[in-house]
């Protein structure tokens, strides 16, 4: 999911309603009477708010930050927080948790957007969901900057994030080091950011792969899919190690078995495509899935595939109550799959 197109930063004027609004990426903060920060990624929302605060402090170092919480908001609180104080310093009001706000909050915000105080910056933080939609539409429609915080899902985007973090700290890293970091901590963006900060503060010079390995080696992001990949590749040792990692970090056996089943299903379907009669499109398979499966299939016999699928079905029954130990059942299935592959 790429961040929304970078904009020129021009306000489209209050009179004309721009349907798309003034949407920018989270790392391009802007200062305006009302700023909306929206998107499901926690860390990015925090960064966006910090960015706005930084701009405000650049303009006026005395800027006072006031935080309001959406869920406990009472009528009039925004007005109180946003009005100029006795000493006339600028104010930045952060309305956090607007996705779970009270009805009073939305009513007050609607009023405020119509006539904002030009000296004050109000930052509305809305994670996701439909609540307060009218208020959101009005804020977007007023041309206020919208800092979009979309989740970072793909590995390439995560690597990009790491590089940007490093650049902000005026540091550089080898591409392998970045990849190793993403592999180790990619599941949680916050952890990834914390790891970068740790490396930046503890080390000097270019961050290298051995350095990352020293800090975060042995930590693996183990998902069901990675377990399945290793098992299908016939790498029993890695598969079991990954499986134990996954189980130790709280993965449930049931989805693990489902991931194994899905991987083998794709193999069997691609085998059927090779046999003729059906096309990948009919089976709803992507090109890359077919390519990967074809590569794997070179080392698989129909008999092996049959044994593997049968073992996974047994494991599913076992983890759902037919067996005594769910963990053992999955492990046995993983070993059977790895062994069923032709040497």
């Amino acid at each position: 999911m790429p961040p929304a197109a970078p904009t020129t930063g021009r306000r489209s004027g209050g009179a004309r309603k721009a349907p798309a609004g003034n949407v920018r990426s989270w790392d391009e903060p802007a200062l305006a009477p009302v700023v909306l920060v929206r998107g499901p990624e926690d860390l990015l929302r925090e960064r966006a708010v910090e960015g706005v605060l930084r701009l405000a402090r650049e303009r006026d170092p005395e800027t006072e930050k006031v935080e309001l919480e959406g869920a406990t908001y009472g009528a009039g609180m925004l007005q109180v927080a946003a009005s100029p104080s006795l000493f006339g310093e600028a104010k930045l009001v952060v309305v956090a948790g607007a996705e779970a706000g009270t009805d009073e909050l939305y009513a007050d915000l609607l009023d405020y957007v119509g006539a904002p105080d030009p000296e004050t910056t109000v930052v509305v933080v809305h994670a996701s969901g439909q609540r307060g939609k009218k208020m959101l539409d009005t804020v977007v429609g007023s041309g206020a900057p919208v800092l979009q915080c979309d989740p970072i899902a793909r590995d390439a985007e995560k690597a990009d994030f790491v590089v940007r973090e490093l650049r902000a700290a005026r540091r550089r890293a080898e591409p392998e080091a970045v990849r190793a970091l993403v592999d180790a901590l990619g599941a949680d963006l916050r952890e990834l950011a914390a790891a970068v900060a740790q490396l930046v503060s503890d080390t000097t010079g270019i961050i290298t792969a051995p350095l990352v390995d020293r800090y975060y080696g042995g930590r693996v992001e183990a998902t069901g899919f990675k377990v399945a990949d290793a098992a299908v590749a016939g790498d029993a040792g890695t598969a079991v190690a990954l499986l134990r990692h996954a189980l130790a970090t709280g993965a449930d056996p049931v989805p693990l078995v489902a991931a194994l089943a899905m991987r083998l299903r794709t193999l069997a379907k691609v085998a059927a495509i090779r046999g003729g009669g059906v096309t990948a499109r009919e089976l709803g398979l992507q090109d890359w899935q077919v390519r990967n499966a074809q590569r794997d299939l070179q080392r698989w016999t129909p008999e092996g595939l049959a044994a593997a699928i049968t073992a996974v079905a047994q494991a599913d029954a076992d983890v759902k109550g037919a067996g005594r130990d769910p963990v053992f059942a999955v492990e046995r299935a993983v070993l059977t799959i790895a062994r069923a592959r032709r040497r």
Binding site: R265, A268, K269, V270, A271, A272, I273, R274, G275, V278, L283, P302, L305, A306, I309
Partner: peptide
Amino acid sequence: RGVGDAVL
């Protein structure tokens, strides 16, 4: 006739 057909 084979494993692929079976899955289908």
